[in-house]
Design a protein around this nucleic acid. Structure first.
Lengths: 223, 223
DNA sequence: CCTACCGATCGGTAGG
DNA sequence: CCTACCGATCGGTAGG
């Protein structure tokens, strides 16, 4: 099955436009920028340098193309949190590791494409509930479950209070992300928080989280 | 300037359709149900039993009608939180009063119309940033500022720890609302939390909040 | 003459 | 692969 020209990723001789993951990428760019209703299949075909016929051959409808874009998105972000969560899991300094994680969550979740994809899915959640369901399960709920698992491990090592690790993960997530995500979502990035404000919010989030979830053991007692 | 028939609210002899606040109400219903793009001026005019020309005379474009609906909405919800915040302000039992407020926030913010309006504004935030800005300032930020003011009062009475009352209000808001609001927004109300789950989340939110913001005074020390 | 309102239809553009 | 084109429907405005 060896092909003659391994340098060229294109399968056929035609110069051709985009397909597969590249096609989904340009479709995603337009969807995030314009929204679902304002995105036309003509615009996507033109940006991918393919005909609408070719576009409809790989994606039978606008809705199916949207679903493919979201599925591709959640698969790409599937394991993005893994290394950072593993670092938290093996830490000896919980407070600093939580601060690090808060900063990583800010950088990741508050980035324009992530916020825009979230807004896009919210906007179409009523019309396409199964797409929104896949998004919420495979991105948010999955990462929250992974974080809960790490918290359970830390509790087992005596570095966090034992209790409902799922509740702890939920509270940490929204203490860190709630206010800035809400603000950015509702202002289209116009009045973003400054880096100093975000850092202060991360410190306050960790402080409140640890006030509740710090182990009662006297050796690790804080003032 | 006394008119002959004060019983009839209509100004002219024609039977006529809706206008003013009633017109905005039916427009809001359709916008919340269908979304902005799928809402047609024809449908609004038909639901209000007026011609499109009459509709366009009071609202010069679809966008201006949308802005009027949002303005009307934030004005109606302006002081909805007042009595509940005043009850918290004058309480002697902070923990129970916070639990009560959490339940009220759940009932108010997680109700379908409030969630739908929020989703609608988010969906159009990029296209109509000034409408989203008015919404976020006059509903969310305003209520958060009112809550911060109450927290500052409670701190002055020694019932909460002194500190940044704004941070406390932000953390309380998102501890209480973050997880369920996210879930309901992204599932279009399909997989709502049960009353028991919401009550448990409220208790955990208050517990975490008080772990950080409870005064250090020994008389009010908790176990 | 004016205001309020209607039936009909305009130019453009959507998904397919 | 592309151009042309469909049935439908949109926001906004004409004449009367």
């Amino acid at each position: 099955m060896a092909s003659e020209r391994t340098v060229q990723p294109r399968r056929r001789g035609r110069p051709g436009g985009l397909e597969g993951a590249d096609l989904l990428s340009v479709a995603r760019d337009i969807l995030l920028r314009e929204g679902y209703a304002a995105t036309t299949m003509d615009a996507i075909a033109a940006a991918a340098r393919i005909s609408k016929q070719t576009l409809y051959r790989s994606h039978a409808s606008k809705q199916e193309l949207f679903a493919a874009v979201v599925t591709d998105w959640v698969e790409r972000g599937q394991n993005a949190m893994r290394p950072h969560l593993d670092r938290l899991r093996s830490t000896e300094e919980v407070e600093q590791a939580l601060l690090d994680l808060a900063g990583i969550l800010h950088a990741a979740v508050l980035s324009p494409p992530v916020v825009q994809m979230r807004s896009l899915v919210i906007a179409e959640a009523e019309r396409f509930p199964e797409i929104a369901a896949e998004y919420v399960q495979r991105s948010w709920e999955r990462n929250e479950a992974l974080l809960a698992d790490v918290f359970a491990d830390l509790a087992g090592r005596g570095l966090l209070a034992t209790g409902d690790a799922g509740t702890a993960a939920q509270q940490f997530t929204w203490l860190v992300l709630g206010a800035p995500l809400d603000r950015i979502t509702l202002t289209a990035g116009a009045s973003r928080f400054s880096e100093e404000q975000l850092a202060a919010m991360a410190r306050d989030a960790v402080a409140t989280f640890l006030a509740r979830w710090q182990p009662a053991s006297p050796v690790r007692r804080r003032v």
